[in-house]
């Protein structure tokens, strides 16, 4: 039996590069069937992006380029996916669990009458079809879901899938954007992010260093940045630190922020509110440094240090640097 087509939504950055989630989307698709990439972008970027998708394992890539992508929200992508859906008759569609991915999944779910498996952290196939894995209530429970029949749309949690596809030279198919008929919001402005951080993305980083309210100030939060840079780690923050203005919202780890599952998680001055634990408690190793010996973070830490992060961390960095030199 021929392998089933697994569609993936591969968003493109303004620079023309594929968004980082492409590797894990195509990796997850390769676990299920034939990975097929779909790229919907403003004119000019598609060819390079399609080749990059091939390197990540896309056997075929459907590309559509149109000015409307920059001026109309979601609808151009929905339009192209509807066409590709007809052509490829996919068994599943994988999208990143981010804002644009969710909007696309939602519209297509209703249009194609396909259920959604949301915020999946993994996928596999059994004899009856595709199964999505979920991590529920801040990783306290794991569940598996499937569709009763028909295709399944999966929003994949960023940074959750390690499997990667094999590089191939993809078949590239051009798709024309059809007439946009549905109601849609207009995109009236775009402001590029000020600076691209050189740190690894929080979601996929092998090591994450997070700072909390205990660091005392925005200046104090620089301690977490220094350690992150010394370890080549992603940088995170507790909600309390974000609310206090020490760190931007995009760094928030927890129930209402990013969920991470790194090999090593180092918490500096984080008390360990249940909402924070919900975002990091599947880390393989947790190290916590906190002045308060009663801080709940110690209940889940593999190594807990009762002490002042401003003394422990500089000594740690110094010791590691001395060892490496």
């Amino acid at each position: 039996m021929a392998e089933q087509n697994i569609l993936t939504y591969l968003p493109v950055l303004p620079s023309g590069e594929l968004v980082g989630s492409a590797a894990e989307l195509l990796g997850a698709a390769a676990q299920l069937g034939t990975p097929v990439g779909v790229i919907v972008t403003s004119p000019g970027a598609a060819e390079d992006a399609a080749r990059a998708a091939g390197e990540l394992g896309a056997a075929a890539v459907y590309v559509a380029e149109h000015e409307a992508v920059g001026t109309t929200l979601t609808e151009p992508a929905v339009n192209v996916f509807s066409t590709v859906w007809e052509t490829t008759q996919p068994e599943a569609l994988l999208v990143p669990n981010d804002i644009d991915g969710r909007d696309l999944a939602a519209r297509l779910s209703v249009r194609t009458r396909s259920p959604i498996a949301s915020d999946a952290v993994g996928v596999h196939r059994d004899e009856e079809g595709i199964v999505a894995h979920h991590s529920v209530y801040g990783s306290a429970f794991t569940t598996e879901s499937a569709t009763t029949h028909g295709a399944l749309i999966i929003t994949l949690r960023e940074g959750a899938v390690d499997h990667r596809g094999q590089a191939v030279t993809p078949q590239i198919h051009r798709v024309e954007l059809g007439e946009l008929t549905g109601p849609a919001a207009a995109i009236t402005g775009f402001e590029a992010s000020v600076e691209a951080s050189t740190r690894p993305d929080l979601r996929g980083a092998a090591t994450v260093v997070s700072g909390g309210r205990g660091l005392g100030s925005a200046e104090g939060f620089a301690l977490a940045e220094q350690l992150a840079d010394a370890l080549g780690a992603g940088l995170g923050a507790s909600r309390a630190a974000v609310d206090a203005g020490y760190a931007p919202h995009s760094l928030q780890v927890g129930q209402t922020g990013v969920t991470v599952a790194p090999d090593l998680y180092i918490a500096l001055g984080i008390s360990g509110a249940v909402q924070h634990l919900a975002g990091m408690q599947t880390a393989k190793t947790v190290v916590a440094i906190n002045k308060d010996p009663e801080a709940p973070i110690f209940d889940i830490a593999d190594l807990g240090i009762v002490g002042d992060a401003f003394e422990v961390v500089p000594q740690l960095i110094e010791t590691l640097q001395a060892r490496n030199s």
Partner: peptide, 25 residues
């Protein structure tokens, strides 16, 4: 969408806890 299985994750437990005596780093 149907749920096929549900499992409770093993609770994380506390490991070693030390108090900094100047050498914790």
């Amino acid at each position: 969408s149907i749920m096929l299985s549900v499992t409770e994750s093993p609770a994380r437990t506390a490991g070693e806890k030390i108090t900094d005596e100047g050498d914790a780093g």
